[in-house]
Deep mutational scan, measured.
Amino acid sequence: MAAGGDHGSPDSYRSPLASRYASPEMCFVFSDRYKFRTWRQLWLWLAEAEQTLGLPITDEQIQEMKSNLENIDFKMAAEEEKRLRHDVMAHVHTFGHCCPKAAGIIHLGATSCYVGDNTDLIILRNALDLLLPKLARVISRLADFAKERASLPTLGFTHFQPAQLTTVGKRCCLWIQDLCMDLQNLKRVRDDLRFRGVKGTTGTQASFLQLFEGDDHKVEQLDKMVTEKAGFKRAFIITGQTYTRKVDIEVLSVLASLGASVHKICTDIRLLANLKEMEEPFEKQQIGSSAMPYKRNPMRSERCCSLARHLMTLVMDPLQTASVQWFERTLDDSANRRICLAEAFLTADTILNTLQNISEGLVVYPKVIERRIRQELPFMATENIIMAMVKAGGSRQDCHEKIRVLSQQAASVVKQEGGDNDLIERIQVDAYFSPIHSQLDHLLDPSSFTGRASQQVQRFLEEEVYPLLKPYESVMKVKAELCL
């Protein structure tokens, strides 16, 4: 049975990233139509530049190519590739079939990587351009969430054990800070992308030097003109047959890092959902379990974690691919890159769409948070109580021993009897502590235990987050809708 299948058929496997999760716009960027249309555009740009620099290419040939950029006979191309065992030459023939007058000058002087690699770089750039505003929107939604809850005390956790208090907004800023680093890295790697350009079979530009009869300047002009037509500021000066596969490492490393950030955020949300302090959106008709109707599973956060793990592992592909590119190139890269580049971007696209949807509907339960604080705060307040007693004339050592005994009794009630923490009640009825009984409410005010959390939130948002989001103001209103 021949390899390949009808990918629109229910009898043929289709990647869930495309069929179930990723956005239509990201799927289109990695589609065959987008790819092969870009090949034709690159052939047109090459012909236009070659004509401008004096090669015998007519206006009629150029116009014929322009008129057929979208006229792609995919069936013919597939048949040609089956016959020739070469995808680029299959599309040269297919393009030439609908451009008979231009057929002889299509791909003039070029090698397969002229269309293959340059198209990949265009796709990487455009895919990054799709991700950047999506990530900015996630940051914006979380920034709104953090600002609104900047002063809401909550129990902090280290080692997932109760620690000092923080605020809900401050905790959210930990998430935002990681995503801001990801946004900066995505922008950097996007701006650092260079075009492969017009380089020939081993990167020496020998074929173009021959076409222009040894004119170095025209060869350099050709490279520059096509690079500018493709919208790049610069091209690699040095290439082998391909652009260095280190570029793929750079791009997928940034995406993998984004995956790590999203995994951490969504894990926190899942843990908070278990504590009943916070939940992701839950639709009115949504079913959490087929057997347990009360369940409210954090399905979206779980999906993000599941896909983020996949995204983090994909960076190993370009690392290994770059390491086995012998001399000017081997074909070890080809099949692998067809999979890992598309999957990385479709996965990143999915987790950003999902995280935006989550961040637009996060639900906080202040009463649950308050109750958990009441359970733990008495123990945390013991040092403040000791200091207040010393100020009232008591002995630190005597007070410490009193607190120690009462704390152990209260802990026994919590752990052995399943009761509430009654340390404060014990202190309130103990005559030894009568000098500070009137101060206990103040000493137990949760806001006095959150330090500068709310001020940190305000400063972080104003100095770091809002300036970073400013270039994306025009796209901030787009909502994230999930079908599944």
Rank of each mutant, 00 (worst) to 15 (best):
L174S: 11
Q184I: 09
I351V: 12
F212Q: 04
G96Y: 03
M476P: 15
N185H: 12
D216M: 10
G214Q: 11
P24F: 14
I373A: 07
D178C: 06
D6E: 15
E343K: 09
N185K: 10
H263C: 13
K470M: 13
K246C: 05
M278A: 06
Y365C: 09
R374C: 04
L271H: 09
M65R: 01
P281T: 09
R171G: 00
G5R: 06
W175H: 00
D223K: 01
G288V: 05
A453Y: 09
S31E: 08
E148H: 12
L155Y: 02
A49G: 08
I62E: 04
G109R: 00
V363R: 07
K276P: 01
L341Y: 12
F195P: 04
L307Y: 00
E425K: 13
L84F: 07
R33Q: 10
N384M: 12
S290D: 04
S323V: 05
Q416K: 10
D349C: 06
R190Y: 07
F212G: 05
L124E: 11
D216A: 08
T450H: 05
Q456S: 08
L108T: 11
K233T: 11
A18R: 07
K470R: 12
C172P: 04
A410D: 10
K229T: 06
Q177K: 01
Q61E: 09
H437T: 13
S15I: 15
V465C: 12
M292C: 02
F195T: 03
L355V: 14
Q458Y: 11
M225F: 08
E463I: 11
G8P: 14
L222K: 02
A206W: 05
R125S: 09
E376S: 06
N118G: 08
K75Y: 12
H86D: 05
I57L: 07
E70I: 11
K402E: 05
D117W: 01
F327T: 11
T382H: 01
A411M: 08
T347G: 14
S112E: 00
E220C: 08
P467H: 03
R459K: 09
R296Q: 11
R188K: 08
L179V: 10
P16G: 15
S207V: 06
L341F: 15
E370N: 14
A291R: 02
G240F: 05
G361H: 12
Q408E: 06
Q286G: 03
P281L: 06
L179F: 15
L135T: 12
F160A: 06
P24K: 14
D32Y: 09
S112C: 03
Y243D: 01
E401M: 13
T52F: 08
D248L: 06
L341K: 11
A206P: 02
F160N: 07
I351K: 05
A381P: 09
L142D: 08
